[in-house]
Design a protein around this nucleic acid. Structure first.
Ligand SMILES: [Mn+2]
Ligand SMILES: [Mn+2]
Ligand SMILES: [Mn+2]
Ligand SMILES: [Mn+2]
Lengths: 218, 218
DNA sequence: TTATTATTTTTGGCATACCAAAAAGATAAT
DNA sequence: ATTATCTTTTTGGTATGCCAAAAATAATAA
């Protein structure tokens, strides 16, 4: 298997199993990588062979220790590049993901560590995702989705789970950026929209969008 | 053809036809890309099909206008990255080529122009090679090889034609770095070694090495 | 000019990464 | 428990990028 192919699979499995213990379905992988399910079945068989993945057919897959190590490495590269592009090169948080998607495959430890060092070894990327350190150690947080908040509560935006430019530009328009404080006013009976106040302006957030916004109680 | 494959061929043809008019042989391309000659024949047939190359069989190849444009673009990316790695990220001139070899395939105009702008739109890379501007315009120089110099002449090192770490480290050891002034003392009758003075120290340069050092009269 | 040598091309084949359609298996609904 | 619906796997097949060996062509030396 080509390194790039391996890296794309492992990163995807890592991202989809969030806590890194949950088993991941073929379909989810196929969706994320825009591949035919048949291709994913083949891919997983090979990754199992390579001992990067434990793949039990018709059940699901999870990373081995070796697979996890590799996955954390590429996740680190991706997120360091995103941070570098945003902080040092002036790109918007809606632009960095696509570029990092390519840069992440350039495997040079010295390069990534240098970028990280220039950035002051950041622990979070522009989307609020934690950045593994050079040894693969990653910050564990107990943030919740906006969709799981309680009415009348005060929260702070900590991250997003959707990196698409469309979504990120939409958030920016409402000033729902990382670090912004929000106050949940009420939930619409009709469609479960969340009405909240952010930067003194009232905003209505659809349930779908609320699923993609990560917050912390304050 | 995969973009990376196309880019590697076009860049190689460009580099091998220096003045960009000379025809390039299959063998030279095969050597540079570490490919079997049979593979190169196939590759050129496809690039001809794609109108990036004029390939006359059993004779040679040269770039079309479209191929030239693409080649200059990737040469720009390669050299801007090399310069950025050296000047902004602290890598040695012997390290940058290998990393740039991968980074050059990340095709994002805004990114490269940003890097160039941070560097002050440089016109030469760490090896003395000219960097095409955003429009593909490239500085033409009339430098000569150290092997073509005259005895008793005073010259300045302007570049190298070999980017291998071994060669570059060797040069560095003798302080034969870009910008260094040299004075040609004599040429050894026995093996045609060039005896010169650089930074007040006498150095003997083999004909093979002298072929790879670019200088200018002062 | 004729041989010798070097280069290029053709041929046949292999490995990887993918997909569409059919078959099998697992889940959910009635 | 049986059917209907998703999900996964199998099967057969394509496109790309590569190579080794043989055949053809070009360049060089005798
Ligand atoms: Mn991203
Ligand atoms: Mn991110
Ligand atoms: Mn280089
Ligand atoms: Mn260079």
């Amino acid at each position: 298997m080509r390194p790039e192919t391996i890296e794309n699979y492992l990163k995807t499995i890592y991202n989809l199993s969030s806590n890194n213990t949950a088993v991941v379905s073929n379909q989810k992988i196929a969706d994320k990588l825009s591949l035919n399910p048949a291709t994913v079945t083949e891919g997983l068989r090979k990754l199992h062979e390579l001992k990067y993945v434990v793949y039990e057919k018709s059940y699901g897959s999870r990373l081995t220790a070796a697979g996890s190590k590799l996955a954390l490495d590429i996740v680190r590269r991706h997120r360091i590049w995103e941070t570098y592009l945003a902080k040092e090169l002036g790109f918007g948080w809606d632009e960095v993901h696509a570029i990092a998607e390519e840069l992440e495959h350039v495997n040079n430890v010295k390069l990534i560590n240098k970028l990280a060092s220039i950035l002051g070894n950041p622990t979070y990327d522009p989307h609020g995702d934690p950045i593994p350190d050079a040894k693969g150690k990653i910050q564990k947080s107990n943030f919740i989705k906006l969709s799981e908040t309680k009415v009348k509560g005060n929260y702070k935006v900590m991250g997003v789970t959707d990196h698409s430019p469309t979504f990120l530009k939409y958030l920016e328009k409402h000033e729902l950026i990382i670090g912004a404080g929000i106050n949940i006013k009420t939930i619409e009976d009709f469609d479960n929209s969340i009405i909240l106040v952010c930067q003194k302006k009232e905003v209505s957030i659809s349930p779908k969008a609320a699923e993609c916004i990560i917050v912390q109680t304050i």
